[in-house]
């Protein structure tokens, strides 16, 4: 079993990683780079806590080999705020009372980020559809959905409309 050298672009920074081929992006983020904001749970793409952005798309980092990610743009929860003005979502999650245990929240915010990029002022049904791949066991989703709707309204009228 040989190790391979990977150059990964994560949150705008280049990270050189030497790792085994079978290791996932989630493994590398959490264990090698200490980026534990991306969470670990089911490891089968069913819960969404490990969601990151890959070239702007929400993906489950547990089902992606790190080796598949070379040359692509990876953004984690740690990098979301660095995208500029994007703590609108984080703020909305706090203001709407959407955070309980919080373990699903980074994945939720990543999914919502990708979604709002494409749908700046969504309907509730669209938000629910967009977050269906992120399980939450604490909130019943209601305040999470409200937070994404609120962030959509805020960013849709202020920053997001022009920025993207």
């Amino acid at each position: 079993m040989s190790r391979i050298a990977l150059a990964l672009t994560i949150n705008g920074q280049r990270h050189d990683v030497l790792t085994e081929a079978h290791r996932t992006l989630l493994d590398v983020l959490r264990a090698d780079l200490g980026l534990t904001g991306t969470k670990e749970n089911c490891l089968e793409g069913e819960c969404g806590v490990c969601t990151v952005l890959l070239d702007g798309m929400a993906v489950d980092s547990c089902l992606l080999l790190a080796a598949q990610c070379q040359g692509r743009e990876i953004v984690t929860i740690e990098g979301v705020s660095s995208r500029g003005g994007d703590d609108v979502l984080a703020r909305a999650f706090i203001d709407c009372g959407a955070v309980q245990c919080g373990y699903c929240i980074p994945g939720m915010i990543i999914s919502a980020t990708a979604f709002l990029d494409e749908h700046p002022s969504p309907s509730e049904a669209e938000v629910r559809e967009a977050l269906a791949g992120n399980l939450c066991r604490c909130t019943g989703y209601q305040k999470i959905v409200d937070a994404v709707l609120a962030a959509g309204r805020t960013s849709g009228t202020e920053t997001r409309g022009d920025a993207r």
């Binding site: 991306t38 969470k39 740690e78 919080g102 373990y103």
Partner: peptide
């Protein structure tokens, strides 16, 4: 707002699994 919300929405709060 709860006192631990900022750490949770930014991914900086360390859970036992982390």
């Amino acid at each position: 707002p709860r006192f631990d919300a900022p750490g949770k929405v930014t991914g900086t709060l360390v859970y036992a699994a982390d």
